[in-house]
C-alpha cells in the first residue's frame, strides 16, 4: 500500500479526533467556570462539591475515568436498575471534558483570585453585590489572564483524545492502530499520525490565540 492510501482512513479518524476535542473542550470550559467559581463560593456546600470534583478528576488517571464511564458505569447502573450504557462518543467526551474541566477550574479560580484586592475594595466602596462584582469587575479582568493556560489545556486535551481509541472510538489513534495491524507499516503510519496531531495542535493553538486577542480588549486599551 503506498503511503497516500493511508490518508483517507486516517483523515476519517482525524475528523473524529477533532469532534472529540471540540466537544470535550467546550464541556471542559463550562465545568471550569462552574467549579472554579464554585470553589470561591460563600456557600460551604457549593465549595465542598467543587473541591471534591476538582480533586477527584485531577487526582485519578484519565484512562481509568474513561474506562469507568464506559465499562463500569453500565454495570453500576444495572445494579440499581438504570440503563447507564453510554455510546463511546458520549463516554469519551464526558471523560475528557470532566478531566480537563478539573484542571481548568483551578485556572479560573487562580485568575479570579489574582485580580488585585484594590479592585474588590473599589467594588465594595461602590456598593456592588458579590455577584455584580464577579460578573462586572473580576471576571472581565480575570478571563484574559486565563487564556494562555486554557490554550495549553486545549492542546493537552487534543492529545488526550488518543486514549479514547481504547474504548473502540474510531479516532485518529484508533485508525492508525487498525492500519498498522493490517499493513505492519509502523514507521510510515505513525509518522503521518504524528504530523496530523501536530498540524491539529497548530491550528488549535492559532485559534486560542485569536480567542485570547479578542478577550484581551477587556483589559482596556493599551496606551
Amino acid at each position: 500500500m503506498p503511503w497516500f492510501d493511508y490518508l483517507k482512513p486516517l483523515a476519517d479518524g482525524a475528523w473524529i479526533t477533532v469532534q472529540l476535542t471540540v466537544f470535550s473542550t467546550i464541556l471542559g470550559a463550562l465545568l471550569s467556570f462552574i467549579f472554579g467559581i464554585g470553589k470561591l463560593s460563600d456557600n460551604w456546600a457549593i465549595r465542598a462539591v467543587s473541591i471534591a470534583y476538582i480533586e477527584i478528576f485531577r487526582g485519578t488517571s484519565l484512562l481509568v475515568q474513561l474506562f469507568w464511564l464506559y465499562f463500569a458505569l453500565p454495570i453500576a447502573g444495572d445494579a440499581i436498575g438504570l440503563d447507564l450504557r453510554l455510546p463511546p462518543v458520549v463516554a469519551g467526551v464526558a471523560a475528557l471534558g470532566l478531566n480537563i474541566g478539573a484542571y481548568g477550574a483551578e485556572v479560573v479560580r487562580g485568575a479570579i483570585q489574582a485580580v488585585t484586592p484594590s479592585q474588590y475594595e473599589a467594588a465594595t466602596a461602590l456598593n456592588f453585590t458579590r455577584r455584580q462584582t464577579l460578573w462586572k469587575i473580576s471576571l472581565p479582568q480575570a478571563i484574559p489572564e486565563m487564556m494562555p493556560s486554557f490554550g495549553n489545556l486545549a492542546v493537552q486535551n487534543l492529545k488526550d483524545t488518543a486514549l479514547a481509541s481504547l474504548i473502540s472510538l474510531g479516532d485518529l489513534a484508533f485508525r492508525a492502530e487498525q492500519l498498522r495491524n493490517y499493513t505492519q507499516d509502523s514507521t510510515t503510519i505513525y509518522t503521518i499520525v504524528l504530523l496530523m496531531y501536530f498540524g491539529m495542535a497548530l491550528v488549535l493553538t492559532a485559534m486560542m490565540r485569536v480567542l485570547e486577542a479578542s478577550v484581551g480588549r477587556w483589559r482596556g486599551a493599551r496606551s
Binding site: S118, Q119, E121, A122, A125, I137, P140, Q141, W218, R219, G220
Partner: peptide, 10 residues
C-alpha cells in the same frame, strides 16, 4: 483611593 482603583477594563 490613593491608587485610584479605577476599573481598567471600562
Amino acid at each position: 483611593f490613593q491608587q485610584f482603583n479605577l476599573f481598567p477594563h471600562m
